[in-house]
């Protein structure tokens, strides 16, 4: 067994197999495990995926939403136990891999066209 195979086998124990196929531009609802007062609960966070990073166990998505007029971006480690679930709400049609241009836009200009050829 060579070095890369050993490392991959360690990562394989923690990789999630039930992740949905995500694309940049999708609107997703992420269930985030938060702890308060010694209790665990799942808090939903909904927004648009504006960036994705591949990297095996280090795979992340950046989800942006505008909350009370303030832009909020959260980066989720997809395989982390803190991400309890992730659900695609809407598939978006975009022509960029990174939607950083949304940061400069407000209101109606941040809308993304929906596409219907991909399964939710």
């Amino acid at each position: 067994m060579n070095a890369q195979e050993v490392i991959r086998s360690i990562e394989a124990e923690q990789l999630k197999s039930d992740l949905p196929v995500l694309y940049v531009g999708d609107t997703v609802r992420v269930g985030v495990v938060i702890q308060e007062g010694g209790k665990e609960r799942v808090q939903p966070y909904e927004g648009t995926i504006i960036a994705m990073r591949n990297g095996g166990i280090n795979e992340t998505v950046t989800v942006r939403r505008v909350f009370q007029g303030v832009g909020v971006e959260r980066v989720f480690l997809l395989h982390s136990p803190r991400v309890a679930n992730i659900k695609v709400v809407r598939r978006g049609k975009v022509r960029r891999a990174k939607l950083y241009y949304l940061r400069q836009r407000i209101g109606k200009a941040t809308r993304i066209k929906e596409r219907f050829d991909r399964k939710k």
Partner: peptide, 14 residues
Amino acid sequence: KLGMTQVFDETGRA
């Protein structure tokens, strides 16, 4: 040394 990776602990930290 074989290389580096990350693991998650029981609280979910990488």
